[in-house]
Design a protein around this nucleic acid. Structure first.
Lengths: 205, 205
DNA sequence: TGTACATCAGTGAACGCGCGTTCACTGATGTAC
DNA sequence: TGTACATCAGTGAACGCGCGTTCACTGATGTAC
């Protein structure tokens, strides 16, 4: 980290980090460019040296989120255990861990209302992360008897939906009481039951 | 509907309706009290004759949402078909139909960041709707062999999470491309697979 | 190594705007007689 | 039926605020000679 002075040195990333922190704290719509600038120790006008405006800053947060997400998911799946099944379950845990560890990114990606097609860079990153999820689903799909095998995109959408639902409803630190179970446990059990429904886990257990 | 004049006649509900429309259009944080007032044809200050402020208005939207939601779910479950299973599947469809038909309510309930405990009325309505979901899960739970039966609250949380995930990710009219399948079909298939995993549906097709 | 200069990242003041909320008020409604 | 009056739902002006964005500027950095 360089020193303090007239020139910041790494303002662009500092602004992104500030934005991520604020998005985590106040949600994507509660986030303001001015406060991000202040957090980074800089005038609001300085932001315009690095971004086109407020939305562009959020889009960049989302983009970085997708990059991290894709890496994390890919790593979890490819080194997740001996079998495709174990790898898939590791992927589910990685999803939740990502949402937990990068809440600002997560919200910028999935709750900001910003279109994945807003910038070409964001579109590419978003496509990649989606593709990796589907890839994992596809690999596991092979083990399902063809006659009861749903399309891999549907399979993937189910898992994604349940994961996202768990994050939104039970993993976020909501003020009003919630969380009947630890989210990790809830999601793992849910995915387990779902996979059993596909015949991927032994019935009699 | 009474006429137009100095006194509105039914301003309270008109404000709620306006708020619901705006929440649907711009999200709970994009919603403004002033615009709701304008939509209802009234000065912003008039709102304070009926609500304590902005948040109180949103809370009332959420409360009405929970009332409708509970009624809808209860009706679907209790008249959903011959078996508990059929009733449960009707409940899933009703969930999605509710989110579709009452998007403003849905967002006020689950995405506004307003605590269910903000007012006693909201807390009561919220508890009721949650209770009804769990009741449906519990009834169906009875059919599961005890040794593989998850707690009813977990069962209910799984279904809720998947439903919510489908709504958020695939049923909302997002600008950027999405929705690989009709949400109804996606959710129904997902719940079907999940229930099969619990032994509630025949394994061999 | 030292000086002149171009670059460009940041400043700070200003803009117009819409927000939520308050306040003293006004005028329509409805009740008492 | 007609009048006097209390009630209270809505007005309109005002408040202080923070927002996103623009603009001419300034001063630190780094390069050319």
């Amino acid at each position: 980290m360089p020193k303090r002075g007239y020139h910041h040195g790494n303002l662009r990333q500092a602004l992104i980090d500030a934005a991520l922190k604020l998005i985590d704290e106040k949600g994507p719509t509660g986030f303001t460019l001015s406060e991000a600038a202040k957090t980074a120790g800089v005038t609001p006008a300085a932001v315009y040296r690095h971004f086109e405006g407020r939305e562009d800053l959020i889009a960049e947060c989302a983009r970085q989120g997708h990059e991290i997400f894709a890496d994390v998911i890919e790593h979890a799946f490819s080194s997740g255990g001996g079998s495709d099944l174990a790898a898939f379950e590791a992927t589910g845990r990685a999803y939740l861990a990502f949402a937990r560890k990068f809440p600002g990114h997560y919200q910028a990606m999935f709750e900001s209302g910003i279109s994945p097609n807003r910038t070409p860079e964001l579109a590419a990153a978003s496509a990649r992360s989606r593709q990796i999820l589907e890839q994992a689903a596809e690999a596991l799909s092979e083990h399902i008897p063809p006659e009861k095998r749903p399309p891999a995109t549907m399979f993937s959408a189910h898992i994604w939906a349940m994961s996202h639902g768990v994050v939104e409803l039970f993993a976020r630190g909501k003020p009003g009481g919630n969380a009947p179970f630890p989210p990790e446990e809830l999601l793992e059990a849910g995915i387990g039951i779902y996979l059993r429904g596909l015949g991927l886990i032994e019935q009699d257990k």
